[in-house]
């Protein structure tokens, strides 16, 4: 999977590159509008992660460029302008997703994963691990081939863990993920505890082993390796 990261802040660029590299993505980077547009013209990417304010130009123009070239690259807009206008504007121009700074790398990875899944697998991705099977696009969960009924938050939580499987997701990232599109809500960890408790209970009640590991109170990890032995 080939990704282009367009971000003028070198430290943030490096973080994204490192994180996505470790997930098996090949990352190209661009720090200015010029380099970004050159790379967009010359190459094909599965997804472009795009900052809006760039030296030498505006990220929205790069979205227009992608659409003008009739390229199929997915686009995630990353912007500190956390305003509805920017979001709507970006999506109207044809961006696939919008992420406001500051975001968690796990969130970015989950969004990236979703876009690539929609483009490459036509949505038929299935996560399967022992007795647990999740049809990601249909949002169906099966334990021992029996459908398990989860509420929206619990399902979101499980899918988020799956999108970041085998890595530690901070409680902070989970809290942000669960409260997205809920402007102004208090994001407390107590909410996550409650959802996590319910999710784990439903899974174990259905006969699923506990694959969700707690990491020293800082986060969680969907651990597919250790439980397989």
């Amino acid at each position: 999977m080939k990704i282009l990261i367009v971000e003028d802040e070198p430290e943030l660029l490096q973080s994204m590159r490192l994180f996505l590299n470790s997930q098996g993505y090949r990352c190209e980077v661009a720090e200015t509008y010029e380099t970004a547009s050159e790379k967009i013209i010359d190459d094909i990417f599965d997804c472009i992660i795009l900052d809006i304010s760039l030296p030498g130009g505006n990220g929205f123009d790069l979205v227009k460029l992608v659409k003008k070239l009739k390229k199929d690259d997915g686009v995630i807009i990353v912007s500190a302008f956390n305003e509805l206008d920017n979001k709507l504007n970006g999506l109207k121009l044809g961006a696939d997703d919008y992420l406001a700074k500051p975001f968690h790398l796990a969130e970015l990875s989950a969004r990236l994963h979703a876009i690539i899944r929609r483009r490459n697998f036509s949505g038929a991705e299935v996560f399967e691990h022992n007795e647990l099977r999740v049809q990601v696009e249909d949002k169906m969960v099966f334990v021992h081939n029996k459908a398990l009924l989860l509420n929206k938050k619990e399902l979101d939580l499980l899918l988020f863990l799956i999108a970041n499987k085998k890595r530690v997701i901070s409680k902070s990232a989970i809290s942000q993920h669960l409260s997205q599109n809920e402007s102004g809500y208090y994001r407390g960890y107590d909410v996550i505890y409650a959802h996590m408790k319910n999710l784990k209970k439903k899974l174990t009640d259905a006969g699923c082993r506990d694959y969700i590991k707690t990491i020293y109170g800082v986060g969680y990890k969907l651990d597919c390796d250790e439980a397989t032995d």
Binding site: E9, E11, L12, S15, M16, L18, F19, S22, A80, N82, A100, K101, P102, F103, H104, L105, A106, R167, V168, S170, S172, A173, I215, Y216, G217, V218, G219
Partner: peptide, 26 residues
Amino acid sequence: QTPVAILQSKLDLLLQSQGLTAEQAH
């Protein structure tokens, strides 16, 4: 928000490091 975003991304990276101790996690 940009500096905060950088800081947070560094923490996300740190969290993935192997052999994280309880104290570091805290």
